[in-house]
């Protein structure tokens, strides 16, 4: 093949690639663009033909309706509290247990490993009914602590951090013991600063899966004011139906802001995180 041939092939290949990239880009984005667009339309415009991406008469009515018909502010606050508490718990206890497993190497740690692996292996579905009964016994039905409780610590978090801690050279700890740092001192001052990529990936994945968790909050929460965003949206949709779909799309638009912002801000960690977590485990 001549030089021109190679270049022509490349140009053709690149063009095909761009056509495919733009094609899937549209498929991936169109439903979400339509969602946002409909959120700003009066109901008479939502179903008109030909469709308009930019609303001809933009309105905030749908947002007002979503905000006043249901306590949307509470959905957001509840989700924020639940997801932040879960992230804090998963990181804090994950780091402590991983430290003991990977660095302290205390006797009996193989039993601890078994417990962690059990957490990775046992499917969550088998725990729902007993967890529900426990939370009920504790009087935590219809409370945020009931939503948080089973997710406050995570074996996956321990596993991920322990994997990472094992790569830290041991001499660092011997030196710091000589310097008189206690166990918590070593964890806080030496281990955690060195583990920022793993902590970031774990934090983001925990946050997103907590924010999007639907099944468990659906079981625990009864009152409207205690609902998290997905549960609130699902019931809002069931109340409003297709007739008031603009209200639902406005609710959706509010609801995607936080996950999308987190994704765009921390995109690097997301991709790295799949490298770290996706290849290891997704729970």
């Amino acid at each position: 093949m001549g030089k021109l041939g190679v270049r022509t092939t490349r140009i053709i290949l690149n063009s095909v690639s761009y056509v495919l990239l733009v094609g899937w880009g549209l498929v991936a984005a169109m439903p979400l663009v339509w969602m946002v667009s409909s959120a700003f339309k009066y109901s008479r415009e939502i179903y008109t033909w030909p469709p308009s991406i930019i609303p001809r008469q933009p309105t905030f009515d749908n947002f007002v309706a979503a905000w006043t018909k249901v306590p949307f502010d509470w959905f957001l606050i509840n989700s924020a509290i639940v997801s932040l508490v879960e992230v804090t718990g998963v990181l804090a206890f994950g780091a402590m247990v991983a430290y003991v497993l990977a660095i302290r190497r205390v006797p009996g740690r193989s039993l601890l490993w078994v417990l962690v692996l059990a957490g990775l292996i046992i499917p969550e579905q088998v725990t729902y009914i007993p967890r529900f009964m426990i939370v009920k016994q504790l009087g935590w039905i219809n409370t945020l602590q009931g939503v948080v409780a089973p997710y406050f610590m995570s074996s996956f978090g321990v596993f991920l951090l322990a994997q990472f801690f094992q790569t830290i050279p041991g001499e660092l700890f011997d030196a710091s013991r000589i310097d008189g740092l206690g166990e918590f001192g070593i964890l806080l001052r030496i281990v955690l600063p060195l583990s920022q990529p793993a902590l970031a990936a774990l934090a983001i994945f925990t946050w997103l899966s907590s924010w999007n968790n639907f099944f468990w909050p659906l079981l625990v929460v009864i009152n409207e004011s205690k609902r998290t965003v997905p549960v609130g949206l699902a019931s809002f949709f069931q109340e409003e139906g297709v007739a008031n779909i603009g209200h639902v799309m406005a609710g959706n638009t509010i609801a995607i802001l936080a996950p999308l912002a987190v994704f765009i801000l921390f995109q690097r960690h997301f991709v790295q995180g799949i490298g770290v977590t996706g290849l290891k485990e997704v729970f």
């Binding site: 899937w24 880009g25 991936a28 984005a29 439903p31 979400l32 339509w34 969602m35 409909s38 997103l208 924010w211 999007n212 639907f214 965003v229 997905p230 949206l233 699902a234 949709f237 297709v242 779909i245 639902v248 799309m249 959706n252 609801a255 995607i256 996950p259 999308l260 994704f263 765009i264 995109q267 997301f270």
Partner: peptide, 21 residues
């Protein structure tokens, strides 16, 4: 980034949007 949007958006939202479409 754009390809990844549907992954980040919650299933409940995805469901209502596709039902609407």
């Amino acid at each position: 980034t754009v390809f990844y949007f549907p992954v980040v958006v919650d299933w409940v939202i995805v469901s209502t949007v596709w039902l609407f479409l």
